[in-house]
Design a protein around this nucleic acid. Structure first.
Lengths: 128, 128
DNA sequence: ATAAGGTTTCCACTTACTGGAAGGTCAAGG
DNA sequence: CCTTGACCTTCCAGTAAGTGGAAACCTTAT
């Protein structure tokens, strides 16, 4: 598989696949005679894994760690669970923050008449 | 006020205040004879405004726009409300995403025994 | 043979700062 | 008067995770 094919199969932009190769996160299995990156099934699986893990909010470095655990099936699941639980807590914090942001902002927006008058509770709310 | 004072008063890092000056978001009212940035009450108000708007998720460029509206009290509140409503929708989208992320991830974490056994549903869940 | 499209490398740009180095300034204490 | 320490200046570099573009090479089809 060339980079375009593996990019499509993994649902990642070509640029991103190349970037992952550059940073050594998922390296191609080899190069063609003309220098094209060549990927196999196992790299494809890793790329899909990374895409999903990234969408779960794992950082690239965490993906690297996860990929290490993934590759080494002798590792305990404890390490993996630790990472996941940490992520869950971060997500919960982020959601709480967003909730209060949302509440404050919609309160302001609701009290704003949104017409041509210059008075705006959003502006004064932010300023106060 | 020197930069340290205005930074403390606005609850922003000095570096950030300097950065805002560099990008022309909040420029000091002048410079002292020795080249120190000098800030007045009006700049302090703007910095506080920006800090709050940033904490609401407005980008720096949106802050610039907001600051323009803020400065020009003849502007209608429609423009401001438009920005705010847009932000609220983005926040709601983000929260929905986070919610499904959270649900999926906690499902995986809950089914993971988290012991020394190498089998891990999180890993296989991400891989599938 | 040529055109289209895929691939290569390299470099710059993005967001919103943050850290650090080298050096100038200011106020207080000895 | 001198020094010390806190504060200030500019400039350079780096962060995360890519994205965009340019110039040139490769492959495939017509």
């Amino acid at each position: 598989m060339n980079i375009g094919a593996v990019a499509e199969a993994s649902e990642l932009p070509t640029k991103t696949v190349r970037y992952y190769a550059d940073i050594g996160l998922v390296t191609p299995s080899g190069r063609s005679s003309s220098g094209y990156r060549v990927y196999g099934k196992s790299e494809l699986r890793k790329l899909i894994f990374v895409r999903r893990a990234r969408s779960f909010g794992f950082s690239v470095e965490e993906c690297r760690e996860l990929l290490g655990l993934y590759a080494d099936r002798d590792r305990s699941s404890r390490d993996v669970k630790r990472l996941a639980v940490q992520r869950i807590e971060e997500i919960e914090n982020k959601m709480r923050e967003l909730q209060s942001l949302h509440d404050e902002l919609s309160h302001l927006a609701n009290t704003c008449h949104g017409d041509d008058r210059p008075d705006c509770p959003i502006i004064s709310g932010l300023a106060s």
